[in-house]
């Protein structure tokens, strides 16, 4: 039995975490590597690497657009996982969590999926359409492969919170609001109360995500949770520089702009 997982070993702290999300292959596979490194430079503690999917039920228009761009470049579940060693070669040291819908995992086969994650050095996995009741075999594979299976709780999880939080591994993903990713979010006092309830039962850091798009949001979440998870906003920052990023002549400057924008968001 491991006393500390690889994920925990690579995590430099357990509070004030910045957890950005990007989609593998958006806007191109090579740029995903550059963007991951810029995020690490800007203070990211964990990288959520999204696998583009044709039918992402939990995602709003921003991440749908990113997935479309990535699929256009032929990105796939295995392709995304195989980006991790390339990121490591270029200096990425923070833990990487693969974020994928379940169907590509099922198609590949659960065991093969976890073997591939291990071989390529992923430290965690998150499957948004696999609730606790359907995830038993995946959680077993995760445990035997020393990979953290990240669970989610929602504001309406109610009596499910305790069960999910107590078994949570890596970090616990708190969905801040009912809805899909990238929505407008007003972080109300109810959210604060919800975070408190989750923290009471969780043995791992509690991160909050969905609809966090301003520096003000970030500051408010920091006050109450252990981590802030930002997806759609990061993708919009990539989108706003997409032409400049793709063009080799302007890439360096565009990556700098992206870096500064991320810093402004989380400082």
């Amino acid at each position: 039995m491991l006393t500390q997982t690889t994920f925990q070993g690579k995590l430099s702290k357990t509070s004030d975490l910045f957890i950005p999300f990007i989609v593998a292959g958006d806007p191109t596979p090579d740029l995903t590597i550059d963007l991951a490194l810029k995020l690490q430079e800007a203070g990211a503690d964990i990288l959520e690497l999204g696998v583009p999917y044709s039918d992402p039920l939990a995602d709003g228009p921003t991440i749908q657009r990113a997935a479309k761009r990535a699929l256009h470049h032929g990105m796939s579940l295995t392709g995304a996982i195989e980006l991790i060693p390339k990121m490591r070669e270029h200096g990425l040291t923070i833990p990487v969590v693969i974020f994928t819908y379940y169907n590509p995992v099922m198609r590949l086969g659960e065991e093969k999926f976890f073997d591939l994650l291990s071989e390529n050095g992923a430290e965690g996995v998150l499957i948004p359409d696999l609730p606790h009741e359907e995830s038993e075999s995946v959680r077993k594979f995760a445990l035997s492969h020393d990979i953290e299976y990240i669970s989610l709780v929602a504001p309406n999880s109610e009596e499910r919170i305790q069960k999910i939080a107590e078994q949570a591994r890596g970090f616990l993903y708190c969905v801040s609001t009912l809805g899909v990713t990238g929505g407008e979010n007003t972080l109300s006092s109810e959210v604060v109360e919800f975070i408190g309830k989750v923290k009471q039962h969780s043995k791992v850091p509690v991160g909050v995500g969905f609809g966090i798009s301003t520096n003000e949001d970030v500051r408010m979440i920091r006050e109450h949770a252990d981590g802030v998870i930002i997806g759609s906003k990061i993708i919009r920052l990539i989108e706003s520089e997409v032409d400049a990023l793709v063009d080799e002549n302007s890439r360096k400057n565009a990556l700098e702009t992206f870096y500064r924008n991320v810093q402004d968001l989380v400082e």
């Binding site: 039920l57 939990a58 379940y102 948004p128 359409d129 696999l130 609730p131 009741e133 359907e134 989610l152 709780v153 929602a154 504001p155 309406n156 999880s157 109610e158 499910r160 999910i164 969905v175 009912l178 809805g179």
Partner: peptide, 12 residues
């Protein structure tokens, strides 16, 4: 069959 949905839909 089953319920392969985001956590938010488990309660409804």
């Amino acid at each position: 069959g089953g319920k392969y949905v985001p956590e938010t839909l488990m309660a409804p």
